[in-house]
C-alpha cells in the first residue's frame, strides 16, 4: 500500500490539480466579494448549486445543452446575485461583517431547503457534452478529456479575473473603491453600481463552477454544502480577500488533498483543516494576506 509507484503518483497529482481548479474558481469569487464588499458570502455554495440546476433546467425545459448553459447559467445566477445585493446585502453595508455572514448563510439554507424539497437529495443526472467525452491514455493513467477542459477553463478564468482586477481601469476603480469609497465617489464614479457588478461577477464564477461540475458529479441540492466549508478553508489559508492567494492556494490544496488520498485516505477530508489551523497559528492573516 505504501509503496506507491511513481507513475501512480503522477496521476494523483493531476487529479489533485483538477479538484484544485474547483477550489480555486470558488475561492476566487469569495475572495473578490470579501475583498471589495467585506461580505463573507456564505451562500456561495448554494449559488454554485444554483448554477448547476440552471444548466439542468435549460436542458430539460428548453433543450439548451451544455455550451449554452456555460454562458446562460452564469448570466442568470449573476443577475440573481445582483438582485440579492441590491435588495438585501446593500442594507447591511457598513455593519459588522457578521451580519452579512448571517444573511447569506440564511439564504443558503433557504435555497438548499427549497431544492431538496423539490428534487430530493440524490440529485439528477447531467450528461457530458459529446465533444468532451472519452479521454487520453497517458500511459500512467487514463485522463478524461472533460477533466482537462475543467483545468483549462478554470485557469483561464482565474488568470483573466486576476488580470481584470490588477491590470485594467475597471479593476483599479474597484480597488480604489475598497480603499476609500467616499473619495472615489467624489471623483464621479458610481460606487454602488461597482459593488453590484463585483458581487454579480463573484457569484457568476460560482455558477460557472457549478455548470462545470454538473457532468462530473450530479446536480444535487447538497453539492454546494459539501464543498463550501473546504472552500472557506482555502480562502482563510490564502488570506481573506487576496485574489492571487486564493488561486494559488486553491490549486495547491487540491494537490495536497490528492496526495493525502494516496497515503492516508481516512484523513483526506481533514487535511485541509489541519493546514488551516497551522497557517492561522503561524500567519494569522493567511499565506498571501496583508498583515494587519
Amino acid at each position: 500500500m505504501l509503496a506507491v509507484p511513481v507513475q501512480a503518483l503522477f496521476g494523483q497529482l493531476l487529479i489533485g490539480l483538477i479538484n484544485g481548479s474547483f477550489y480555486a474558481l470558488l475561492s476566487l469569487g469569495l475572495a473578490i466579494i470579501f475583498g471589495l464588499l467585506n461580505v463573507i458570502n456564505f451562500c456561495h455554495g448554494a449559488l454554485y448549486m444554483l448554477g448547476a440546476f440552471v444548466a439542468w433546467f435549460l436542458l430539460e425545459k428548453a433543450g439548451i445543452g451544455y455550451w449554452g448553459a456555460l454562458i446562460l447559467s452564469p448570466l442568470a445566477v449573476g443577475l440573481f446575485g445582483a438582485l440579492m445585493e441590491r435588495l438585501l446585502l446593500r442594507r447591511l453595508a457598513g455593519l459588522d461583517a457578521l451580519y452579512g455572514l448571517l444573511l447569506t448563510f440564511g439564504i443558503a439554507l433557504v435555497l438548499q431547503g427549497l431544492f431538496s424539497n423539490w428534487f430530493g437529495s440524490s440529485g439528477l443526472p447531467y450528461e457530458m457534452p459529446p465533444q468532451l467525452q472519452g479521454g487520453q491514455n497517458l500511459g500512467f493513467m487514463f485522463l478524461p478529456n472533460y477533466r482537462v477542459w475543467v483545468i483549462g477553463v478554470s485557469l483561464v478564468l482565474c488568470l483573466g479575473t486576476w488580470a481584470v482586477i490588477e491590470r485594467t481601469r475597471l479593476g483599479s476603480r474597484l480597488r480604489a473603491a475598497t480603499e476609500n469609497a467616499t473619495l472615489v465617489s467624489a471623483f464621479g464614479i458610481n460606487v454602488p453600481r461597482l459593488v453590484t457588478i463585483t458581487y454579480a461577477l463573484g457569484v457568476a464564477l460560482a455558477a460557472i463552477a457549478g455548470v462545470l461540475a454538473a457532468p462530473i458529479y450530479r446536480v444535487s441540492p447538497l453539492m454546494g454544502a459539501d464543498l463550501i466549508i473546504v472552500v472557506f478553508a482555502v480562502v482563510v489559508i490564502g488570506g481573506m480577500g487576496s485574489i492571487l492567494g486564493s488561486i494559488v492556494t486553491g490549486f495547491s490544496l487540491g494537490v495536497l488533498e490528492g496526495l493525502t488520498k494516496v497515503f492516508y485516505p481516512e484523513a483526506s477530508n481533514t487535511v485541509i483543516f489541519v493546514v488551516m489551523a497551522i497557517v492561522l497559528l503561524v500567519r494569522p492573516a493567511g499565506l498571501f494576506g496583508k498583515q494587519a
Binding site: I15, I18, M141, K261, V262, P265, E266, S268
Partner: peptide, 22 residues
C-alpha cells in the same frame, strides 16, 4: 488485492479509483 477507506460523503472518487485501477 487491497482497498481504500474513504470518509463518509466524500466528493471526488477519481483518486481512489485510480488506486483501484493500479
Amino acid at each position: 488485492l487491497g482497498g481504500v477507506k474513504h470518509p463518509l460523503n466524500a466528493t471526488d472518487f477519481s483518486s481512489f479509483l485510480l488506486q483501484a485501477q493500479a
